[in-house]
Structures are given as C-alpha cells and as structure tokens.
C-alpha cells in the first residue's frame, strides 16, 4: 500500500515545506539528463528517493512555471511513441548554471546544519 503523504517528518517521509527550496534542484537535475514531462519527472523523483518524498502535482507545476518564467527551462510540445501529446521541458544554459549554484548552496546548508545535528 502506498504511504499517504504527511506534512510531518515523523514517519520517515519529508514534509513539503522542508523541501521547498530544493524542488527546483531536483527537477533541474533530472532535466540535465534528458528532456522530460510532468508525470515522468514526478515518478523519477519518487523512485530515486524510494518513496521518501513525493512531489505533489501543484508543487511540480508551480516549479515549472517559476523555472520557465526565469528562463531556466523551456516547455515545448512533444509526442510520445504512443501518440500522446505532452508539454516537455528542456533545460537552458541559464538553468544549468542555476543548478550548479543551487548545488553549491546545498553543500553549504548541509555543512552548517550538520554542525547542529546530534545523533
């Protein structure tokens, strides 16, 4: 049975407000590998973190709009082999450099927070 997603982190799942700043990073990282569309991206994210984080549809779509407005990704119409038309996204050069920036930021955040974490 699929776990129902909760806001708190007490069940081994991650709450959405914690991840807020890093949704962009995840999406961009997947688009760096290949162009993709909404559901595929959300599925990949779920698989990569083995169901510990599920990105909600509205979160994903607002990230797309935000990244597209900022010029980090571009949407285009594509048709899959089974003939279904979808909006695909590709990453722009600006998007790649924004991704690098976010990665550096995360390293820093990790370093800082780690200092306060006592097992």
């Amino acid at each position: 049975m699929r776990t129902v997603y909760r806001e708190k982190g007490d069940d081994g799942l991650i709450g959405s407000d914690v991840m807020r700043g890093y949704n962009d990073l995840m999406i961009l990282s997947l688009l760096m590998e290949q162009d993709s569309y909404g559901y595929e991206i959300s599925k990949q994210i779920r698989q990569i973190c083995s169901d510990k984080y599920v990105m909600k549809e509205t979160t994903l779509y607002s990230a797309f709009t935000r990244l597209e407005k900022a010029g980090y990704i571009e949407g285009y119409f594509g048709t899959e082999t089974n003939g279904k038309q979808r909006t695909y996204y590709r990453i722009t050069p600006e998007g790649s450099s924004y991704y690098q920036e976010k990665c550096r930021e995360w390293q820093l955040v990790k370093e800082v927070v780690e200092k306060f974490v006592k097992e």
Binding site: V4, Y5, V54, K56, E57, T58, T59, S62, T65, K69
Partner: peptide, 13 residues
C-alpha cells in the same frame, strides 16, 4: 491525495 493545493500555484500564475 497527492494533488497538493492551489494556494501555492496562485502566486506563480
């Protein structure tokens, strides 16, 4: 249940 909420979309739109 995995849809989310529209509040976060409003700003982006």
């Amino acid at each position: 249940s995995e849809f989310g909420n529209l509040e976060e979309l409003k700003e982006e739109l």
